[in-house]
């Protein structure tokens, strides 16, 4: 990108194979601009063409052209420092001269993409194709972002979450979520039993919280983000009441749960059950759920 600013004499275009046929993921780029990224899966080859054009028909000398496939984690509080956990490189052209537009094919075969792309509050995990034209003065670099999804095998054990919680002589409830692990289009089904109610509850809601943890102690940053607040009860329950829960996840912008990605960050999801009483006091209980991706369709 920097190339534009220097009004580089070379235009580089990266074209990926079957780009039109791929799904695109729209992500937020810099300055609110939206970038469409083609979607790749783990173990998938990344191939395409790089076209280099010379402006105004000038002759340009370079010291080599290479294409790289990079996976990097960018921590925002640590700007500038990109941790590249994956970097594959291929030489497209030996040092020489460029007189006219030239197209190079490239292919990264069955690249292992260990992590999913992720864009969080403090952290971004991205994959991109980078073309570098090395010159003595005014080298040209061009990056092209791609988005990566990876499926994990559905977990073997998927117990329901069931728990009795309460405040002594005040409120006892038992809640139950049908699973502890949900896929992205899953639906949370559950219920809440009121075993003892001595406070005047106004309503009850279930929220999904995404917690992003970056860095490692002592320089650890935690960011919590409420994905949705979902009211599940209106009015005061009495003892013995059973309130149903059904929450479709498909409509929310969720990612799978990430744990200790490259020891750099984690993104976890919690279900937060909140009861609000008439004086607006909040009683809550958080419960972690695991979210995973399954193949679509």
């Amino acid at each position: 990108m920097a190339a534009y600013f220097f009004s580089s004499p070379i235009d580089v275009e990266i074209k990926l194979d079957d780009e039109e046929a791929r799904k695109f993921v729209e992500i937020k780029g810099e300055k609110e601009a939206m970038i469409n990224c083609p979607l790749y899966y783990d173990e998938e080859s990344v191939s395409g063409q790089v076209t280099v054009r010379v402006r105004d028909g000038k002759k340009i000398t370079h010291e080599g052209i290479k294409v790289e496939f990079v996976g990097s984690i960018e921590l925002f509080y640590d700007r500038g420092h990109h941790h590249e956990f994956l970097s594959l490189s291929q030489e497209l052209a030996a040092p020489g001269e460029l007189r006219q537009a030239q197209t190079f094919d490239f292919l990264f075969k069955k690249v292992e993409k260990q992590f999913e792309s992720y864009q969080g509050i403090n952290v971004k995990l991205r994959y991109f194709v980078r073309v570098q034209i090395t010159r003595r003065v005014g080298g040209v670099t061009k990056e092209r972002d791609v988005w990566v999804h990876s499926y994990r095998m559905p977990p073997d054990s998927n117990n329901s979450i069931k728990m009795e919680v309460g405040i002594e002589d005040c409120l006892h409830i038992e809640f139950e979520y049908n699973k502890s692990k949900y896929h992205l289009k899953d639906v949370i089904v559950g219920k809440i039993y009121f075993l003892l109610v001595r406070i005047k509850i106004k309503h009850m809601e279930l929220s999904i919280i995404r917690r992003e943890t970056t860095g490692s102690p002592p320089n650890q940053y935690n960011e919590s983000e409420t994905i949705t607040k979902f009211e599940i009860m209106d009015g005061a329950p009495v003892r013995g009441e059973m309130i149903p829960i059904r929450l479709f996840l498909g409509g929310f912008d969720l990612t799978p749960t990430f744990r200790e990605v490259n020891k750099k960050f984690s993104t976890r999801y919690y279900l937060n059950l909140v009861l609000i009483d008439e004086e607006n006091r909040r009683y809550f209980k958080q419960q972690e759920i695991t979210i995973f991706r399954i193949p679509e369709n």
Binding site: M233, D234, G235, E241, I243
Partner: peptide
């Protein structure tokens, strides 16, 4: 089943 969630007398 889902209507159980509204326990406020008038609204319910």
């Amino acid at each position: 089943e889902m209507s159980r969630g509204v326990l406020h007398p008038i609204r319910g």
